[in-house]
Design a protein around this nucleic acid. Structure first.
Lengths: 331, 331
DNA sequence: CCTCATTAGGAAACCGTTTTCTTAATGATA
DNA sequence: TATCATTAAGAAAACGGTTTCCTAATGAGG
């Protein structure tokens, strides 16, 4: 393995100088920079990230915490996107990204989790799929020992940023689109919501309710708990008499659509997320497509900013409204 | 952060002694072990894996190389399972697992990939989703600079193990089951295969052909390239006159089933993999369920063995035949 | 009782970086 | 010309472990 010493020798400078060049420190002359970079090129030197992360409290590593075991079947796809995005951005920023899963910390106190993260030189965490009732993880973020970027939870502080789409607005948009594009009476909407301990549920429900006031349609909200099965049951019971079924997640939208199909009723259904599975569920479905990979990337970049000293903030990501078609799945 | 020095002080021994206790070295007295472990407990000491991996050529880190961008939509779920399994087992073995994606190495020569891995202190790699035409990655494995565990490729050497189910046997089993459980004539099977540059395709096709000889049914093999669309097209063209459609992957099975449904034909279809998506595709489908998470776990354990000095070998993992039902998806 | 082998434990070097000090050299100012 | 900043570069001390010696103590063998 070629080390920084080899480069230093080759360039005829001290190791510290090479390090400064690598990290773009000021107070290195143009000449030296060139000489060092040549040596780096010639020797195909790549700095050892493990050593860097050990010696530097700066170049910390960042953990992506996800919960692919979590409630929904869709989560595996979504979590993978988050991870891919973060790993990709981490690669570009020369930052080690380590994937961790909620299940690893099951039953642990905050302190222990903290120790475990410290023991991996983790300085920053990205948390995806956090619910209100996950106290240990929430505490972890709030104690601010780590720079945190939380996806879809309104946490914000000196060391904590949050990121995600504007769920309320997106819900309004997709629902409005669904209503206006369908010629039926559309004055009666069944909204099947996600679990109530989830922030996105609150927001999405709020969006739906606000729109119902604005447009003056009838809105029934039922708790589908993010469960396809539950959504199915609710739809079987109440779906027939409604004009439109709106769901707080794609998975529930699928459950609802299956139920409608079984009943031989053909109301439009809209979901939320934009998972691949949607393509397989039926016709006349729309959804809000979030770009989870982009979110993962941006979350990692935000980690860098926080580690660089920036204050926590709120980041809203774009989304798109889409008509679901099986043909799209076939690429 | 509490370090090994703190523990040493507390236990009244040298750092080296603590290290020996942590790593279960011999030549430490029972007494000392107990004292040290008490100190570890009391201080809540967790060894820093970064430092360990820097100082020790032994405690290397292992990379999981996956390709979730890859051809199939299913891959995101499958790759996630591999990663989860590996991370879980890595956690237990106190080994850092770092996720990497094929796309990161696109267009690179082996040497560069090697350097990049070395620069992360990676000593062992798990490769999932490798195809015959990925020369750089194949070379990477064959140069044996790293201990490799390859999923579903028959690579084996001093430093290389392979792991996976017996694809030929599994294909025979699922096909036999599909044939015997369906009362129709069943003397004519359409087999839609995966891409030909893939080892699993060879094996699965071999299995189907062997069974066709053994049981004396008619077998037509078509190349579906692991594509749902292609499988759909093939089925539209040839499916009607067959009795059974067998596919080299679930995704293709779904494409085939959709095509049959569109044609109002109801032949049994069998796939391969056991992805969640199958539950949404239709009735009368069977598949071979692989436990990708288990494979990931076992792969990581094999990395440990290889790093411990064991020679490479071949590991066959169990699989199950299953009837696909939407109800199962609803758990 | 002396020698030799064996064992328990410690001191110190090392892994490959970063970072903090120093020092030397340069140029500006008085 | 003497003084003081300022800048470029190097030496050395971290970072938190592992590992390689080395020493002291113990017990066995003669």
């Amino acid at each position: 393995m070629v080390t920084i010493r080899d480069v230093a020798k080759r360039a005829g400078v001290a190791v510290s100088t090479v390090s400064k060049v690598i990290n773009n420190y000021p107070s290195v002359s143009e000449d030296t920079i060139i000489r060092v970079n040549e040596a780096i090129e010639e020797l195909h030197f790549i700095p050892n990230s493990v050593a860097a992360s050990l010696s530097s409290k700066q170049s910390g590593r960042v953990a992506v915490l996800t919960d692919p075991d979590g409630q929904t079947l869709a989560s595996s796809e979504i979590m993978m996107q988050y991870i891919m995005g973060a790993v990709k951005a981490g690669n570009e920023a020369r930052l080690d990204v380590v994937p961790l899963f909620f299940s690893m910390f099951a039953g642990m106190q905050v302190e222990e989790i903290e120790h475990r993260l410290e023991a991996q030189n983790i300085r920053s965490i990205i948390v995806c799929g956090l619910d209100r009732d996950m106290t240990a993880l929430t505490q972890l973020i709030e104690r601010e020992k780590f720079k945190s970027v939380v996806v879809d939870m309104p946490l914000e502080s000196e060391n904590t940023s949050n990121i995600g789409v504007d769920h309320a607005q997106a819900q309004k948009d997709i629902l409005r689109k669904t209503i206006t594009e369908n010629t039926g009476p559309s004055n009666s909407v069944l909204y099947i919501s996600g679990r109530t301990n989830s922030y996105v549920t609150e927001e999405r429900v709020r969006g739906a309710m606000e729109l119902s006031e604005e447009m003056g349609f009838d809105l029934t909200v039922m708790n589908g708990e993010f469960s396809e099965k539950k959504a199915r049951e609710i739809t079987l019971k109440l779906g027939r008499d409604k004009d439109i079924i709106a769901c707080g997640s794609d998975l529930m939208a699928i459950g609802a659509m299956k139920a409608l199909t079984d009943m031989n009723v053909f109301h439009p259904v809209c979901g939320f997320d934009g998972i691949t599975l949607m393509g397989y569920a039926g016709k006349n479905m729309t959804t809000v497509r979030q770009d989870f990979k982009d979110i993962g990337e941006e979350a990692l970049r935000e980690c860098c900013r926080l580690m660089g000293g920036d204050k926590g903030r709120s980041i809203r990501m774009p989304y798109t409204l889409m008509q679901v078609r099986y043909e799209d799945v076939l690429e």
